[in-house]
Computed example of a mutant assay.
Amino acid sequence: MTMKKTMIAGAVGALLALGAGGAFAAAPDWGKVEAKDITLFYPGVSPLEWIQKGTEHGGARALKKGETCADCHSDEAADMGKKIASGLKLEPNPIPGKAPAIPVKVQAAHDGENLYLRFSWKQPAASGAAKMDEANPVKIAFMLESGGKVELADQSGCWATCHQDSRTMPGADDAKKKYVKGGSVAEGKFYDLYQWRSGENKGFNGHVADTRVMEGGTALVSAEGKQDGDTWSVVFTRKLAGGEGDVTLESGKSYNFGFAIHNDNSAGRYHHVSLGYKLGVDADGDVKAAKQ
């Protein structure tokens, strides 16, 4: 190849990189980013309707007073997971050997254009149960909500998308996906959804409004994961700005945030979930994304 052709090829490559919306953005120095320890727990069959039912859930009264799920339960998530995974409560079909909880370290940073979210955790022992998702031993997803337009999003995190008539719930329609009551992207009443699948090694960017869709968002730049020994680490890079179905992130603001891991080739409701937290972009939050 002549020097002239080499220069042209390099220029074209640079333009393509710029046109990819920062797809080659460098990740932060994670050694300098504060990590937040969050315990995911196995929730069994505890949909939104259950947490609002005072005769079965003592925290229903606290919710009505404006308290959050994390206010009451953040320090006991692992214990709740043990009780539910064992079948003592809220699980009609317990899976022997199911991990009750997964401790996760969460880090966040931004560079003025992109948000970076890193999740790391140790792989729990396999249960030996039949594989629900043959293709993906692990999936991790997180959701963002802006402005509290979704009822209870400020208090319950992602629970506003979890309903007793959703698929894999006892007696539910197998075709019914997660949804938000009265959800509407046009009205800003939705969750912005991101997921990474280990077997496919692929990221997805969708949303949850009147139903869940896994694609269509334009904010996701990349999702990359790897397993080093018994430790997983997954990094999501998304633009601060977004299109339809994406939450636009602004410096100085906080956003409702929750995440979940499908471990052990699990699917549907058989995941581990976080309570509801706040992601602060140059602002106060349980997880803080400062500029690097």
Rank of each mutant, 00 (worst) to 15 (best):
M3E: 15
K64P: 04
T218A: 07
E224F: 06
L48T: 03
R61G: 15
A26Q: 13
P96G: 05
K181C: 10
L117N: 00
G188E: 04
N205V: 00
G44S: 08
A223I: 00
L275P: 01
T39Y: 03
G13R: 13
I102K: 05
K5F: 14
V213Q: 06
E113T: 15
S254P: 05
Q155G: 08
D228F: 08
L249H: 01
A78K: 06
L15G: 14
G97H: 05
G285P: 01
A109Y: 01
G66L: 13
E49T: 07
C162D: 12
L40N: 04
A108Q: 03
D71Q: 12
R269S: 09
E187M: 10
L220S: 00
A290L: 15
P103I: 05
A60N: 05
I102W: 01
G203M: 00
Y42Q: 02
A109S: 10
M3Q: 14
L193F: 09
G22N: 06
T248M: 10
D228R: 10
P47N: 05
E76D: 15
G229F: 03
G225A: 09
H271N: 12
V150W: 00
K89F: 11
I261Q: 01
K82T: 09
L193Y: 01
V45A: 11
E56Y: 14
C72Y: 11
D174W: 14
E250H: 14
Q107P: 03
G128K: 09
S127Y: 08
G171K: 08
V235A: 04
A17N: 14
G203I: 00
S251L: 12
V45N: 10
E187L: 12
P92M: 08
E91W: 07
T55R: 13
C162T: 13
D29H: 07
E250P: 06
W232I: 01
K176A: 11
Q227N: 10
H110L: 06
L240V: 06
N114C: 11
K202N: 11
Q52P: 07
P170I: 11
A283G: 10
K149I: 04
F119E: 00
K98L: 15
